[in-house]
């Protein structure tokens, strides 16, 4: 499905050069992304807390129910599967590196392929 970059009427960035903090290239970006994820994680925890509190107002003590919940076999399998998929995305680059090692995909081989294709 084709998507478009979100259009905004308000300026997204402040005018003025953003200072650099870490000397390692890419570290500032990585830290900003990690903290953005932390923000989303925190928002999700707050949302879960809201759900529990609303349920409690309606007489359902979700926190107790959740702590007392026993996952059946189907539930356990489905969660295990979801965790597996999540870890696969999380370790995308590491897994890619491992595959390259296994298949002998090196930078030299990549560049020689460029030459081969240019000529062939």
């Amino acid at each position: 499905m084709e998507t478009e970059a979100p259009q905004s009427r308000l300026p997204r960035f402040s005018k003025g050069k953003r200072p650099e903090f870490f000397r390692e290239e890419g570290m500032d970006e990585a830290m900003s992304m990690i903290l953005t994820l932390a923000s989303e994680f925190s928002a999700m925890r707050d949302r879960l807390d809201t759900i529990e509190r609303i349920a409690a107002q309606k007489g359902i003590i979700l926190a107790d129910e959740i702590d007392g919940f026993v996952a059946d076999e189907e539930c356990q399998a489905s969660r295990a599967q979801r965790r597996e998929e999540f870890l696969q995305s999380l370790y995308y680059v590491a897994l890619k590196r491992a595959e390259e090692q296994a298949l002998g995909q090196s930078e030299d081989r990549y560049l020689s392929t460029l030459d081969d294709i240019a000529k062939g």
Partner: peptide, 11 residues
């Protein structure tokens, strides 16, 4: 200091 200053900026 880098961690401090960056975190303050991101906040």
């Amino acid at each position: 200091f880098q961690t401090y200053a960056l975190t303050n900026r991101v906040a």
